[in-house]
Design a protein around this nucleic acid. Structure first.
Length: 485
RNA sequence: CGGGAUGUAGCGCAGCCUGGUAGCGCACCUGACUGGGGGUCAGGGGGUCGCAGGUUCGAAUCCUGUCAUCCCGACCA
């Protein structure tokens, strides 16, 4: 007989979340086989299970990009150093993080090549060649690519030297169109992250100090992690005509005048995988929302007696039936592990739904369904699986989102004074909404004293009046503050 | 990039102070019994101690350098 575990912790290899959130995160990444360290500083290997999650995230976004009129293309990894330097703010913002290729083909290069930290420069250069007339606009291109930013401090998925992302780059005839595009994509980001990753996000505008290097305005979606710190989960930039002027992206307008295009760029990255882990996970490991779970259902057969003849065929039939319904199913028929071991293993890996089937179940024409989030067990007739399983997955997807929304509510505080602000930031972490005068100096002081930064300024209606929590002058906006990743 | 810590079998660790050629738990392999929440017994395999130098008759152990990882700050998706 298998021995019963002596404590409640089914997975002993993972540091409890409450004990050390950071350790817990790293343990989950490693034990769930999402990623592993490589020999190069800050560069991780995304393992098959982690990559499968990323692929599902990619697909969810890609569908929406195409539905909103965008097409995919691919631009080169290397950018001549000179191109990056054409937009002044852009160089200044990125040069500390840039990696260069100085030698190739056995000799020193005449002009160093930059390994792209982002692709505005190379794409702007190409757009200049492709745009002549207002009839060539808009250009709505996205690319899925890797980029390199030499970060001082790295963490798997959250901040790596090389990371995978998507960058949309568009060019428009008018300022209004560019702004519309910027906000439209921000909306797409919110929709996908909330509906597919079940992560509630705050949309808003970044302050000048947090704005993308070279942009007119930057908008972001901000999520709240399980430890009360915020994660910037995606950004959308209105580039104005900054890059158009730097790269000479000009067109002849309807009124025959020569005009610069209006640009946007927007991106989400593999960081989202980290967000997923830190939003939903628990002490037993990962909890994946069904829509981005590589396996939505794991079937664990109970090997008793001649189970290979009795239980296994039933399990295979169920797998085939559910697969035919479009559900991603793993039948764990390994004879080398006990059922209990498999329960713990697949819980740690975050599979939303477990289906247990043993000789008793076969006799009764039923199986036992177990939810990953609540561990609730439901005996279910086999005949009803084709309808019950999809319903349960939908319910789980919704429950995870609602739980995250509630967590965010419980960790969002509105304050009006500096003392309150400091008290909240020191105690229960999360978002703090506070009036702000709009000055970068106040923003910087708040950060210096509390580590909290303005995540963004919410769009839409604002509570009027109020005095800046730092300097007491009239507030221009209510800002969402938080300690951030 | 500053401060702190750590690198010994796949994972977690002991050994280091007081140099003498590496050990424990889990995992892994073989067999049997098992199997509804990380099974039991028996037998077995695997490392030369992050890497590079140095001191020494002899280095996991002492010294120097270097690389990587983690934590705390400053910088960023």
């Amino acid at each position: 007989m298998p021995k019963k575990p002596e404590n409640d912790a089914l997975v002993t290899e993972i540091t409890p979340r409450s004990q050390d959130f950071s350790r817990w995160y790293l343990d989950v990444v490693r034990r769930a086989e999402l990623a592993d360290y490589s020999p190069v500083k800050g560069c991780m290997v995304i393992r098959p299970y982690g990559y499968a999650i990323w692929e599902l995230i990619q697909q969810a976004f890609d569908r929406r990009f195409k539905a909103t009129g965008h097409v995919n293309a691919y631009f080169p990894l290397f950018i001549p150093e000179g191109l990056l330097q054409k937009e002044a703010d852009h160089v200044e913002g990125f040069s500390p993080q840039v990696a260069y290729v100085t030698h190739a083909g056995g000799e020193a290069l005449e002009e160093k090549l930059v390994v792209r930290p982002t692709s505005e420069a190379i794409i702007g250069t190409m757009y200049a060649k492709w745009v002549q007339s207002w009839r060539d606009l808009p250009i709505l291109i996205n690319q899925w690519a890797n980029v390199v930013r030499w970060e001082k401090v790295t963490r798997p998925f959250l901040r790596t030297t090389e990371f995978l992302w998507q960058e949309g780059h568009t060019a428009h005839e008018t300022e209004a169109e560019a702004e519309e595009e910027t906000l439209k994509m921000l909306g797409v980001y919110q929709e996908v992250v909330e509906s597919e990753l079940a992560m509630p996000v705050l949309t808003g505008r970044k302050t000048d100090s947090e704005r993308f290097a070279g942009a007119l305005r930057t908008y972001s979606i901000e999520a709240l992690m399980g430890d009360g710190r915020a994660l910037q989960a995606g950004t959308s930039h209105n580039l104005g005509q900054n890059f158009a002027k730097a790269f000479e992206i000009k067109f002849q307008a309807r009124d025959k005048s020569l005009q610069y295009v209006w640009g946007t760029s927007w991106g989400v990255s593999t960081r989202l995988v980290g967000g997923l882990i830190m939003t939903h996970g628990d002490d037993s490991g990962l909890i994946l929302p069904p829509r981005v779970a590589p396996y939505q259902v794991v079937i664990v057969p109970i090997p008793r007696g001649n189970w290979q003849e009795t239980v296994l065929p039933k399990a295979q039939a169920i797998r085939d039936e559910l697969t035919a319904k479009g559900i991603r199913v793993m039948l764990d028929d390994r004879d080398s592990q006990t059922p209990g071991w498999k329960y713990a293993e697949w819980e740690m890996r975050g599979v939303p739904l477990r289906l247990e089937i043993g000789p008793r179940d076969v006799e009764n024409g039923q199986v036992v369904l177990v939810r990953r989030d609540t561990r609730e067990k439901t005996p279910t007739p086999m005949a009803e699986l084709a309808t019950r399983v999809p319903a349960l997955l939908d319910d789980l997807q919704r429950a995870l989102f609602e739980r995250a929304v509630q967590f965010r509510q419980e960790h969002t505080t509105r304050v009006d004074s500096w003392d309150e602000f400091k008290a909240v930031m020191e105690g229960r972490p999360g978002f703090v909404i506070a009036p702000w005068c709009g000055s970068a100096a106040c923003e910087a002081e708040v950060k210096a004293e509390t580590q909290a930064t303005i995540r963004n300024l919410p769009l839409g209606e604002q509570r009027s009046g109020g005095a800046c929590i730092k300097c007491g002058k009239a507030a221009v906006a209510e800002a969402y503050f938080a300690k951030a990743y």
